[in-house]
Design a protein around this nucleic acid. Structure first.
Length: 893
DNA sequence: GAGCACTGC
């Protein structure tokens, strides 16, 4: 490391040194880099051989089946518990209702009839009722007291018992929770009202009809199944009765089998355009196997944007081909490689293939590569396009299939030198599209009204509503449940179910439960339902036309999560969700004019919106030096690329010729941001690899570690404070992980400390992978605890770019851009305000916040990045501006 | 004193 620093210094202070030694050290580094790469390759080959000996992949399969089984068992354990919970909640609610009813009853009674006009029996009855009410109230009071006094922290729970706070969320979501009742009361009393109070009830019911939104039908999304009357639809049970072979033959691709094989044989690149449900993902690879594309021990690869898809499709195809998953048909995703030497058909995520390029840049073991769901334009598919196009030029025998839904096919074809397009009809029912006559001011409210409107006027069938986030979903759920309750038996039962990615999986599973007869399900979902989750039996879709999108500003290096209008492609995708099992309807909460004139044609592809540090490093590691002219389907903004290159240079991953250094080659092995990669490699020098790996893993599960249930915020916060480390959040995270590890990764411990088990489990997976990679880049695992200065120094070695200094008024200024930023209120340093801090990321929400912060000393910057910082600019006394030009360090070691 | 759409390696 120190030799590198010297070299960098030398290269930047130019004329002082002889050019020869600079050139020499560059060449030496390149030589070392290549030797390192060769060692990696050698090791990979050895490992593959070992897998073959160990009767290939069986372990992975066992692991996979074990995992599936475990999840299943988990659910079985949880479901009865959930039932008890919901019953309890129901009883609670009912009790509240009954008590309120009784109270109203007595009041009415007293108001209407004087005591003396009553008969003795009536008087007795009244007394009895009053007594009952008193008892109920006393009981409630006692319980209230008990609740306060006898509140026990979750650790008091006996072993095996589930902590209660998991479901509390649900309790709070109930329309009748105490807090909500109180709020509603306050609101009601604060409102100015005309007329008699009891007249209001009437109005409320009228509202359902009064408030209606006018929709006009504009067009119909064509379905390919309109002739459904001619060929009677197969029900699910009928389909099950069919043999696998019959099912395969009933798919829309089947008639095109021979044509398709012929087309693949004739052309090197083929674009396949087909709707979901055409069977292309499962069938096309099988056809190619039958056609003999895997004869010479080469594989057919098929990429998917999502892990679940890769796994489930592989399982399905294995079943159809009558082989065991992991043998001839396998899948490969992060943390799980379920393939063997016998595998000829391999499903994988696009990111996995992207990684595979590092060890096999020519895709030598594949005869066909299928890139599926290309229209989704994930970062990885977009980069794969460029790579794969390049390879196709010097491997003429490699076949490429790019498969996509409609619209984009022409663009793909143009990119791949006018490759022919093969069209396969899909299987979808028509969807009628409705627009509002006038724009809606409040789309949440409009959603609720529309749902009730559909519920009251349209035939049965489930509704899917697209909202932007958890917050909106919760509000909408409350409003709906409240209004439904008030409408009472005037309408049929309406079941409201939320879905978003952060929702615990057993709650998510509820969307798949069948709707009871004569009831209707409303699913309130985020974008998760646009692609990731397919829910059957949706007939109606409500689309307000918004989504949350992450954008990266390469000028400031800041990310921001904003609500933006969706694109036309996205709107059509959403509408399509209504026509999967029967003709459907889609209600768009914007005008037809807005659709036509205000929505973009397509969503801006991910590659143009995010930080490309890691992607650029990877491409460099693949030997692609001229990134500015890399063949992108949609080139990312120039500044993003420049920023990424600059950062890589500053980190020492590239030399001044823009070539990858040995350090850079090692960094590329890690599936993390380059700064984090550098941090991990720096741990070698600072002898704290154990700690850094943990911190990296914890930082990778983005801010989803601490759990804050609404009603136990105080407890959650005190629990969190126990982990706070005086020097900052990285160390707090380290403490969380290490304490968890000490309890043998206990679930119970997580509940007790208000920590999300799911995130911790993921951190553990990531950590395991990183440990493996550390060995791969030849770093031993050592610990420096209990001393932690080196942990912070190693962090600084990676993140010296992300440093801010305290200025007047308690604000911080970033060193690089002199931009005003603040410590995030969740940070353990929020009230400390150290002079120098290092941040993991900069996010814009309501303000510019630094998230995950540690305290550092300015002299460390000179130690870890002498090429980047001058001693002068780090002087604490002066307040003068930072000289801009970086890399002109004059420091001597 | 805040607030995390969704994937993936």
């Amino acid at each position: 490391m120190s030799s590198k620093n010297r070299k960098r210094t030398a290269s930047s202070s130019s004329s002082a040194e002889e050019p020869d030694s600079e050139e020499e050290s560059r060449l030496k580094d390149l030589r070392e880099r290549d030797e390192f790469a060769n060692r990696l390759k050698q090791r990979d080959e050895d490992r593959t051989r070992k897998v073959v000996e160990a009767t290939g992949g069986r372990k992975a399969i066992e692991e996979a089946t074990k995992r599936l089984k475990l999840e299943h068992e988990d659910r079985d354990k949880i479901v009865p518990h959930l039932r008890v919970q919901s019953r309890r909640q129901y009883l609670e609610k009912r009790k509240d209702d009954k008590v309120a009813e009784l109270e109203a009853d007595i009041l009415d009674d007293e108001y209407l009839f004087n005591d003396d006009v009553l008969t003795e029996r009536e008087r007795q009855d009244r007394r009895y009722k009053k007594q009952l009410l008193n008892i109920a109230k006393e009981h409630e009071k006692a319980r209230e007291l008990e609740r306060v006094q006898r509140y026990h922290m979750p650790q008091d729970l006996k072993k095996g018992e589930r902590s209660e706070y998991v479901e509390v969320d649900e309790f709070e979501q109930q329309p009748n929770s105490e807090q909500k009742k109180w709020e509603a009361e306050q609101l009601a009393s604060a409102r100015f009202q005309f007329g008699a109070k009891d007249a209001k009830a009437e109005e409320e019911y009228e509202l359902l009809l009064d408030d209606q939104i006018d929709f006009i039908q504009a067009l119909t999304l064509d379905g390919s199944r309109e002739k459904a009357s001619k060929e009677p639809e197969l029900t699910e049970t009928e389909r099950k009765r069919m043999t696998l072979d019959e099912t395969r033959r009933s798919l829309p691709v089947y008639p095109f089998k021979d044509d398709l094989i012929a087309a693949v044989k004739e052309h090197q690149v083929l674009i396949i355009e087909g709707e979901t449900g055409s069977g292309k993902t499962t069938q096309v690879p099988q056809y190619l196997v039958e056609a003999g594309f895997t004869k010479d021990k080469k594989m057919i690869g098929c990429t998917q944007p999502r892990r679940v898809a890769a796994m489930s499709v592989a399982a399905r195809v294995a079943e159809e081909m009558g082989v065991k998953l992991g043998n001839e048909v396998g899948y490969s995703i992060r943390f799980e490689d379920c393939t063997s030497d016998r595998t000829i058909l391999k499903y994988m995520t696009d990111g996995t293939l992207h990684r595979e390029f590092l060890s096999e840049p020519d895709l030598g073991s594949y005869s066909v590569m299928i890139i599926d769901e290309a229209h989704e334009r994930t970062l990885h598919t977009d980069i794969l396009f460029g790579l794969v196009k390049d390879i196709a030029r010097f491997r003429p025998e490699l076949k490429l299939l790019i498969s996509s839904a409609t619209l984009d096919a022409e663009k793909f074809s143009a990119f791949f030198d006018d490759a022919p397009i093969f069209r396969i009809p899909g299987r979808r029912y028509p969807v009628d599209i409705f627009y509002t006559k006038a724009p809606e001011a409040d789309y949440i409210d409009a959603c609720c009204v529309s749902v009730l409107q559909i519920h009251a006027t349209q035939p049965l069938g489930d509704i899917l509503v697209f909202l932007t986030g958890q917050d909106e979903i919760e509000t909408c759920q409350e409003v709906l449940q409240d209004r439904v309750k008030r409408l009472g038996s005037k309408i049929r039962e309406l079941i409201v179910i939320p879905v978003y990615a952060n929702l615990p999986s057993d709650m998510q599973a509820k969307i798949f439960e069948p709707t009871p007869p004569n009831a209707r399900k409303v699913i309130l979902a985020t974008n998760i339902a646009e692609t990731s989750l397919t829910i059957d039996n949706i007939i109606y879709v409500i689309d307000p036309g918004f989504a949350k999108q992450n954008n990266f500003n390469s000028r400031t290096g800041m990310e921001s999560l904003m609500v933006v209008p969706i694109s036309k492609a996205s709107a059509n995708q959403r509408a399509g969700r209504a026509g999967r099992t029967a003709p459907g309807k889609c209600f768009r909460l914007y005008t037809a004019w807005a659709y036509k004139h205000e929505l973009e044609e397509n969503t801006v592809p991910e590659i143009c919106r995010i930080n490309l540090g890691n992607a650029v490093l990877m491409l460099k590691a693949l030997g692609i030096n001229d990134l500015i002219h890399f063949d992108f389907l949609d080139p990312p903004p120039h500044e993003t690329l420049v920023l990424a290159l600059e950062q890589l240079y500053a980190l020492g991953a590239l030399n001044h010729h823009g070539e990858l250094t040995k350090l850079g080659r090692r960094m590329a092995e890690f599936p993390v941001d380059p700064m984090m990669g550098k941090m991990l490699l720096a741990s070698e020098k600072y002898k704290c690899s154990e700690e850094m790996v943990t911190i990296a893993a914890m930082l990778s599960v983005n801010s989803a570690i601490f759990y804050r249930p609404k009603d136990k915020i105080i407890h959650a916060d005190t629990a969190r404070k126990n982990f706070n480390h005086m020097h900052g959040d990285h160390l707090s995270l380290l403490q969380v992980y290490n304490q968890w590890a000490e309890t043998d990764y206990s679930t119970q411990w997580c509940y007790e400390n208000f920590i999300q088990y799911r995130s911790m489990k993921r951190a553990r997976d990531v950590r395991e992978q990183l440990v493996g990679l550390m060995q791969r880049v030849e770093i031993d695992m050592v610990s420096c605890l209990p001393e932690t200065i080196n942990v912070r120094k190693a962090s600084t070695a990676g993140y010296f770019y992300h440093v801010a200094r305290l200025s007047k008024g308690g604000n911080y200024k970033t060193i690089k851009h002199n931009q005003t930023v603040m410590i995030h209120p969740n940070s353990s340093l929020f009230e400390e305000l150290p002079r120098w801090v290092l941040y993991h990321e900069l996010v814009f929400t309501s303000k510019e916040y630094m998230r995950q912060v540690i305290e550092i000393e300015s002299k460390w910057l000179l130690e870890v990045a002498p090429h980047y910082y001058k001693a002068k600019e780090l002087e604490d006394s002066t307040n003068k501006k930072m000289p801009k030009g970086a890399g002109r360090a004059e420091m001597t070691q």
